[in-house]
């Protein structure tokens, strides 16, 4: 309605109020307070003292020696690098498996398509912790994978393939958890793709590879980009997978944050890492928003 009665503004405010207040008070404010905490000094057993300090951020890059001098330290930078690396590995493997699967589903008859989507959605709605935990049984010592080796005598008592508690295990866990988030958006854009365009490409003498690279990929790009982002972002900040499958040795940003709050009890440092993680995520979301705007503008020009 172009013109609403006068009390519409009031009514709208009342309707928006609860949601906005809850998210504002229990999400926005906490993140802001955490931002403030990241610039305070740590108390030895959790909590903070109210004096300004940039130590938390310095600590990321430098180690404070006994004589109070700083030495460049790579420990935390390695954790950041590992987070990016594993998130990237998970994204790429999700894409490599997810795209052909999405293509396959998009080419099924309608009834079958819905069934496939249901089958892919179901595990996604089941408990993440439990699904990750299942991988311990598969990858672990004496697990499902090691069992046949042991049975065949290729693996002796006390020997292990060492699949668990490794970057590999974390990557598998991330891929497994987030792959539906890759398949669904790609499927959505492939389903919309008019298949006669592919045939038109073939009709106009393009080879299968050319048809794929010049028609299918560009037209499904929004889905691919969305899928990659939906996998990459939660992987970057993942906690359950590195915690259960990395075994506390292979830390990622998520586990490092949790460790600072629960075990190390250095709240300012934990807050600082959380803020850095948040900054990365926001940066990626902004890049995505820009790309999406660009794509929209291109569509308009067409």
């Amino acid at each position: 309605m172009a013109n609403l009665p006068e009390n519409a503004t009031l009514r709208r405010s009342l309707a928006l109020g609860p949601a906005v207040l809850i998210v504002g008070a229990f999400m926005l404010v906490p993140v802001a307070i955490m931002g403030v905490y990241s610039f305070l000094e740590a108390k030895s057993f959790g909590g903070v003292t109210w004096s300004f300090s940039g130590d938390a951020y310095v600590q990321l890059f430098y180690e404070r020696l006994l004589d109070d001098s700083l030495r460049l330290s790579s420990g935390y930078l390695i954790i950041i690098a590992r987070s990016f690396f594993l998130a990237l590995v998970a994204t790429v493997s999700c894409l490599i498996v997810g795209f052909p699967v999405a293509w396959f589903i998009a080419r099924r008859p309608l009834g079958q398509r819905n069934m496939w989507i249901l089958l892919i959605t179901i595990p996604f709605w089941t408990n993440q912790l439990v699904r990750t935990f299942a991988w311990i049984i598969i990858l672990g010592r004496n697990g499902v994978i090691e069992a046949p080796f042991r049975w065949a005598g290729l693996l002796g008592e006390g020997e292990t393939l060492g699949l668990m508690y490794s970057d590999f295990a974390i990557a598998v866990g991330l891929t497994y958890t987030f792959i539906p988030l890759m398949v669904l958006p790609i499927y959505a854009s492939l389903e919309k793709l008019d298949f006669s365009l592919v045939e038109a490409g073939a009709d106009l003498y393009s080879s299968r590879w050319e048809t794929f690279s010049r028609i299918v990929i560009p037209l499904s790009k929004p889905g691919i980009v969305a899928g990659c982002l939906l996998v990459f972002i939660p992987s970057l900040g993942a906690f359950i997978q590195p915690d259960l499958l990395g075994g506390g040795k292979k830390l990622m940003l998520g586990t490092l944050v949790q460790f600072q709050f629960s075990t190390a009890r250095n709240w300012p440092f934990g807050s600082a890492i959380a803020m850095i993680l948040l900054a990365f995520v926001i940066a990626f979301l902004m890049l995505y928003a820009r790309a999406a705007r660009g794509a929209k503008a291109m569509e308009m020009r067409r």
């Binding site: 998210v23 906490p30 998520g254 709050f261 948040l278």
Partner: peptide
């Protein structure tokens, strides 16, 4: 603002909420 919880990583939400409740 309403979709903010979707964007913030869960672990960040978790510790921010912890900090908030304790403060």
């Amino acid at each position: 603002l309403i979709s903010l919880p979707l964007m913030v990583p869960e672990i960040v939400t978790a510790v921010a909420t912890l900090v908030f409740f304790s403060s």
